[in-house]
């Protein structure tokens, strides 16, 4: 039996058991709602017992957003918004925010829906043409970018967005809605502005996206991975916005076999995978920066065989077929080039 089959059966079992979790959690929550004081801190008129289920913790602190552009405005409620924005609401209803906000609003009427993100709507309802009276997230909405991001971060602070302030996208004046659009289900996951994460990043980073079409590339155009597998666009502890602490740690997430540490290391490999590879796409084999043997000859000028200049005469159809230039060139013999765990591997021959 293939291991996949075994795992599939195990998963089915686990999933079956896991379906019991919500049932258990739900019972606990019901009991909790009865035994502890109300936890809704957003308004005074708490409706205890309004719902047996209670408000989900993620939406419990949802409140009308603060819009400095409309200081005297008051909340009007979702129904008023929908009266004019019926089509937007129809698209919104099938998104994740709607699912959560509507359920929370049912359990606690003080939790707003539209106005959680868009701020109090009374001023906008009276003068919809005036920009900035409602928090808008599109171009020409009149709402400053800082207000937009601050509103989203009121619920979505922390986690992957912990380093937003000071990150390169924030410094370049991007808003959350440059990449996300929670008003409709444009993408299968992530509430992106386009049909996929990759298409969203490609709006601005088209050159990087096109590099993935080259001869050697990772399976991003084929939909098997996304820019988000390596990068955290919301900000990170590294300059290239990597999700881990370093370039190599990012690569090891999928290429753990290269982690080692090997008995005999190859210094440029341990320092950074990008010394030899270019991550987005290359015209050489295996994402190399430059063809072999020239890649290696940038650092190696040792005596005997590394530092000879090869010409087309060294190729398979040349006067002197030379293993140092043919096929995979240097790494045909130095095959364990990322590091060798063989006691006879100081030069990566084994």
């Amino acid at each position: 039996m293939r291991s996949t089959d075994a795992i599939r059966r195990l998963l089915a079992l686990v999933l079956g058991c896991a379906t019991l979790v919500p049932a258990l959690a739900q019972q606990s929550r019901d009991e909790l709602a009865k035994s502890l004081p109300p936890t809704n801190l957003t308004s005074d008129d708490v409706q205890v017992g309004a719902s047996m289920i209670g408000v989900a913790p993620g939406f419990a602190n949802a409140k009308v957003a603060d819009n400095p552009g409309a200081p005297g405005a008051t909340a009007v409620g979702e129904r008023t918004c929908i009266a004019c924005h019926r089509l937007e609401s129809e698209h919104f209803t099938h998104t994740f925010h709607a699912l959560g906000l509507h359920a929370a609003s049912k359990a606690d009427a003080s939790i707003p829906v539209c106005e959680t993100c868009h701020g109090p709507g009374s001023a906008h309802a009276k003068d919809p043409g005036a920009k900035g009276l409602i928090i808008g997230y599109t171009k020409d909405s009149g709402t400053p970018i800082e207000t937009q991001t601050k509103t989203c971060l009121a619920c979505h602070a922390g986690g992957p967005r912990d380093r937003w302030l000071g990150s390169v996208h924030q410094r370049n004046g991007l808003s959350c809605t440059d990449c996300h659009n929670p008003m409709a289900k444009f993408s299968a996951e992530g509430l992106m502005a386009r049909a996929s994460i990759n298409d969203t990043c490609a709006q601005c980073h088209r050159d990087v996206r096109l590099q993935f079409n080259r001869r050697s590339h990772m399976p991003l155009p084929e939909g098997q991975m996304s820019c988000d597998d390596c990068h955290n666009p919301h900000g990170s502890v590294t300059n290239p916005l990597l999700k881990t602490n370093s370039v190599n740690e990012t690569c090891y997430q999928c290429h753990a076999e290269k982690r080692g540490p090997f008995l005999f290391e190859h210094a440029p490999v341990r320092e950074s995978c990008l010394n030899c590879h270019t991550p987005h796409g290359s015209n050489q084999q295996t994402l190399l920066v430059t063809p072999l043997p020239f890649l290696c000859q940038q650092c190696h000028s040792g005596l005997r065989h590394p530092n000879d200049l090869h010409t087309p005469g060294s190729l398979g159809n040349g006067a002197h077929p030379d293993e140092r230039a043919m096929g995979r060139a240097c790494v045909t013999c130095h095959a364990n080039i990322h590091g060798s765990n063989a006691p006879s591997g100081p030069k990566f021959h084994e």
Binding site: G159, P160, G223
Partner: peptide, 20 residues
Amino acid sequence: DSGVGVDTWRANKLDPTAGA
């Protein structure tokens, strides 16, 4: 999520947008 881990996208060449 976008902070930790890989496997942020599952699709294939037939439809890289996973049905969107």
